[in-house]
Nucleic acid binder design. Structure first.
Lengths: 340, 340
DNA sequence: GTGAAAGCGCTAACAG
DNA sequence: CTGTTAGCGCTTTCAC
């Protein structure tokens, strides 16, 4: 039932080319009589003409779709990112086709393949981030990649992420300034971009303050809640438990909170807690959680802009943008009270 | 650089059709010599052939894309739904192009238009849900719609949602069974499908228990946190405040929690609280929140299945599925203690 | 000012 | 078992 240019051509008596020109060609390169335009436009709306982007894409070799791959859509972090990408992409007339790699390198690869088959104009990818060989395999000059959030150090594409080191440093310094010395870190998955940056930042802040970080105060091995729970339990069982904890991700912090509650320890009186990531509910926890907020929306927005720029100018030098996170002080950290 | 069927044809000496057949036609309707197949396949991989779905879509009038429109991707509810849709769609070789309507009827309409232009094979839509005229305007026999979560009562399309009434009844009954009589509801946006169902369920449960619901115990007017906060404050200021509160959505519950904390009331000792929606962090609140869990993943999955079925058999009778929510009892409700 | 025609990459009769 | 051909809906040179 969908009507095509030639339907309109037939109805109006004009040729397909003319119809195409008035309906799609914004440039007024063609001087077409106003009258003609009006006739064509009116018939088009009368017939409910809907341009066929598929045909257009085939012809122009441009689909005006961009592919997005994220590691976990159910994670508010990525969900928010995709939302901002969607908003920014729409502004430029782009649609987004979204894939969820489920933190799985194989599915990530499948997703890339699918998106390539769909002939997306470019790809925004928050990579799983452990391997990268499969990414190389799909590199092509035709379809630019932009990496989001999770980078590879040797990357040569456009990329935007957050300064994990800086955020971790800020968080740790906040703890130090509140008098804490025995500070533990609940880390995420070792070897990942985010975790490495956050641990490094933590160590830097400690070093700058002249505090030695004890090995047994660095615990944990993934970004999940259980890890936070177990790690915290472990810390509390020490003969010399930390007075403050820095969680490398919000799920970890949630687990820590559970463990602390179970031990009848109250935050921040007994133990101080800061976390990387600032999920929407952080202010509503008790106590409201002091957290490092990432500029997620900005990240999505910048990603789209980088991609658009590269599409416009494929030979421009790749840019690598590091956004600044921001420590949001709420009530989960209090000055250390030294036992009299 | 992308290579096409004709490239492979040239390389192998076979015709484009033969190449097409071995590369794409799963059906063995054509008896092609094994040897030929091998040659073609090997050249294809050697050249890094990536099928062009755009061209395919144009020819077959099937893009193998489905459009998704949700009201707010940053809402964990929709994010989870999209994730499950993505998973289910992938199983059948479908990609999803996602739009965020930002709870805005106009953007919703724009999104539909875009998706139609993209010639998606079908549409899954969690509609804003207030108006529906704009939806009608785009109804066409070519592109089936499936409604998710938010329905219109007079809808004639496939649809899957959750039994809001039942969930609200269960939650309210739980409160009643714990001895509560003065029960308030913090409602969401009046007139929406979700809110109407939830309020109705609440009233039913009260009626069934022979408890009169006082008008001033029905407060609030949207699904946001602030509404929950203000509503709760209002309730607490009454001469005869409720002993239990049912929040119609999780953001509302969060606001309620804030208000209660501010008033130094402790849940569940002083006030009991149940909420519709069970966001991932509910178990980690203090106290862990008793909540009505919606079968979100199942909803996405069913939505895709309905759409796929309709694509296969366009004339089948529309189905309207109501999924059962589940009350998850945690620690935010306690038996009412009557002052001695 | 407007039209004719070619072609984007693919599939599906139809033919042999 | 394989090739020829037409055409999906659109844009764009080139022509008049």
């Amino acid at each position: 039932m969908t009507c095509t240019l030639s339907d309109i051509a037939r109805q109006t008596g004009f040729s397909v080319s003319t119809v195409s020109r008035v309906l799609h060609d914004n440039s007024n390169r063609y001087k077409i009589r106003e009258e003609t335009k009006e006739v064509i436009r009116s018939v088009a709306t009368a017939l409910g003409y809907t341009p066929n982007k598929i045909a257009r894409g085939l012809r122009l070799n441009r689909t005006h779709q961009m592919g997005i791959i994220v590691a976990d859509l159910a994670n508010p972090f990525f969900a928010t990112m995709v939302k901002s990408i969607s908003k920014e992409a729409r502004k430029s007339g782009y649609s987004i086709v979204v894939c969820d790699s489920d933190e799985n390198t194989h599915l990530e690869e499948e997703s890339i393949k699918t998106l390539m088959e769909n002939r997306v104009d470019g790809l925004l990818i928050a990579a799983v981030g452990v391997e990268r060989e499969h990414l190389e395999r799909f590199r092509s000059d035709d379809v630019p990649f932009v990496f989001l959030d999770r980078l590879y150090d040797d990357i040569s594409d456009d990329a935007v992420s957050v300064d994990n080191r800086k955020g971790a440093r800020d968080a740790t310094e906040h703890l130090i300034q509140n008098g804490h010395r025995r500070i533990a870190i609940l880390q995420g998955l070792p070897g990942t971009y985010a975790n490495t940056g956050r641990v490094t930042g933590f160590r830097q802040a400690m070093a700058d303050a002249g505090i030695e970080v004890r090995d047994q105060y660095v615990v944990g091995d993934d970004f999940g809640t259980l890890n936070g729970f177990l790690g915290t339990k472990h810390l509390l069982r020490m003969e010399d438990p930390p007075t403050a904890i820095f969680a490398a991700g919000y799920l970890i912090a949630l687990g820590a909170l559970d463990a602390l509650r179970e031990e009848h320890l109250v935050v921040p009186r007994d133990v101080a807690l800061v976390t990387f990531d600032d999920p929407g509910f952080a202010p509503h926890l008790s106590p409201p959680l002091t957290a490092v907020e990432q500029p997620i929306e900005q990240m999505g927005e910048m990603g789209v802009k980088l991609l658009l720029r590269r599409l416009r100018d494929p030979s421009s030098a790749p840019r690598r943008i590091l956004l600044e996170p921001r420590l949001i002080v709420r009530e989960s950290v209090a000055p250390l009270v030294v036992p009299a």
